[in-house]
Amino acid sequence: MTTVTADERPEHTGGPKPLLDGQQSQGRTVLVHIFVLAPTLALAAAVPLAWGWGLTWLDVGLAIGFYLLSGLGVTVGFHRLFTHRSFRADRGLRIALAVAGSLAMQGDVVSWVADHRRHHAYSDKEGDPHSPWRFGTTPAALAKGFVHAHIGWLFGRDRTNAARFAPDLLADRDIARIGRLLVLWTVVALLAPALVGGLVTMSWWGALTAFFWAGLVRVAVLHHVTWSINSICHMIGEQPFASRDRATNVWPLAVLSMGESWHNLHHADPTCARHGVRRGQVDISARVIWFFEKLGWAHDVRWPTPTRLARLDAAPRAGAR
């Protein structure tokens, strides 16, 4: 039987609410296909396009800048702040992080949080929306599970019940309004780089290459890095800390994921603001939270302590295969 920790327990009153909330609308399903497939096709075309033309230092700078902006919006905002409440933020910072995360084109903030809280509540068990162990442990089942965890689950029609898993965000007028404006943020995510590229170069070609590299390709890379946390980081890697699932650390993803691939500690202690807690474990997201704390914009940060980490070391491990 699955044990749900206090942090992962869905917030609701008035009796149990269902896990799911009907099915995605046909329009939303089409949008998911577009958001996933278009950037992925752009990524597949990136290498031959870059061979000798069509890529400038401006494109590289814009791609890195928008990758950091949208990626940190997801890791610091959607994940560590809104999902797990590992720190508290002033209203302006909450709004800024919600908008920045929305530029990653990973869905609206409320749905993202609901899905992720459901994942933690049922991690690697029935009810987990994207466990790679869903179909079994044979090589064929794991191959199928990898595809499901990495990308396949996004095409499912079932929708996580936000009223059960994210009632706090539904009740937050600022965040709920930002969630409803997903189409606007999608347009901004793709056209803002093009606008900057066009204005700097004063050319349509500069706008087009910026749209391709800092828009489509940047989104595709960030998508696959994020999805790798769902798939790779539940299949292979190290488990230095005790968790009740198969979450692992995968160090090659640490920089691109901005600290999210120190996934074992995160599942062992979901509310901890730092995921890379050992020497040499780069965690850019934690450093950004630290910076916000120094500025006075973030407070009540749940930093790791020796006692907190020692307790995790002493608990039994689930074991990765």
Rank of each mutant, 00 (worst) to 15 (best):
Q106H: 14
S25E: 12
V76Y: 01
R85Q: 14
G276Q: 01
L49R: 08
D168M: 11
G276M: 03
D300G: 03
R157V: 11
D313N: 06
S231Y: 10
T3C: 10
L62A: 04
P18V: 02
A42G: 15
W204M: 04
A89F: 12
P39G: 03
W251S: 13
K17H: 11
A100Y: 07
F35S: 05
G179S: 15
K17A: 13
G52V: 06
I229R: 00
G206D: 06
F155K: 03
F291A: 15
E260D: 11
R311Y: 09
S228F: 10
S86R: 07
T3N: 14
G15K: 07
V219H: 03
L72E: 00
H224C: 09
L216D: 02
L58Y: 08
R118F: 07
I175G: 02
R91M: 04
H130L: 12
A63P: 04
L184E: 04
D124N: 12
S257F: 09
D245F: 04
L58M: 13
G259W: 02
W153Y: 13
D172L: 12
T75N: 11
R9W: 15
R311N: 03
D269Q: 07
V225L: 06
E126F: 12
A50Y: 08
R80Y: 08
L170M: 14
V277L: 03
F146H: 13
P39A: 05
L195W: 14
F35R: 00
A149F: 06
A141M: 09
G145I: 05
S257K: 01
H79K: 10
A89V: 08
L19G: 05
L222W: 09
H224Y: 11
K144M: 14
W53N: 01
A50K: 04
R94K: 14
H275T: 07
V32E: 06
D124H: 11
T29G: 12
K294P: 00
H224P: 07
A121M: 05
M235N: 01
A242N: 05
R317Y: 09
R287Q: 12
R173H: 15
F87W: 09
R88H: 14
A45G: 08
R246M: 10
T137W: 04
A46P: 01
S203D: 00
V282F: 12
D174K: 08
Q23V: 15
F165M: 07
T226I: 09
T5H: 11
G280K: 00
G215H: 08
S231K: 03
A214V: 09
V74F: 09
A89D: 11
V282K: 02
R164F: 11
A6D: 14
V30Q: 05
G61Q: 07
I229E: 00
A318L: 06
M235P: 00
R274G: 02
A207S: 10
W133I: 01
A194M: 06
H223C: 05
H12F: 15
S257M: 07
P18W: 03
T5Q: 07
P304F: 10
W303G: 04
D158V: 10
A318S: 12
P129L: 02
L154D: 02
R80E: 04
T248C: 15
V113H: 01
P10C: 10
P16Y: 10
L69V: 13
F87K: 00
G65L: 11
V188A: 01
F78D: 00
F146Y: 15
P316G: 06
A318Y: 12
E8C: 15
M202G: 13
G61F: 08
W205S: 08
Q106D: 06
S111R: 01
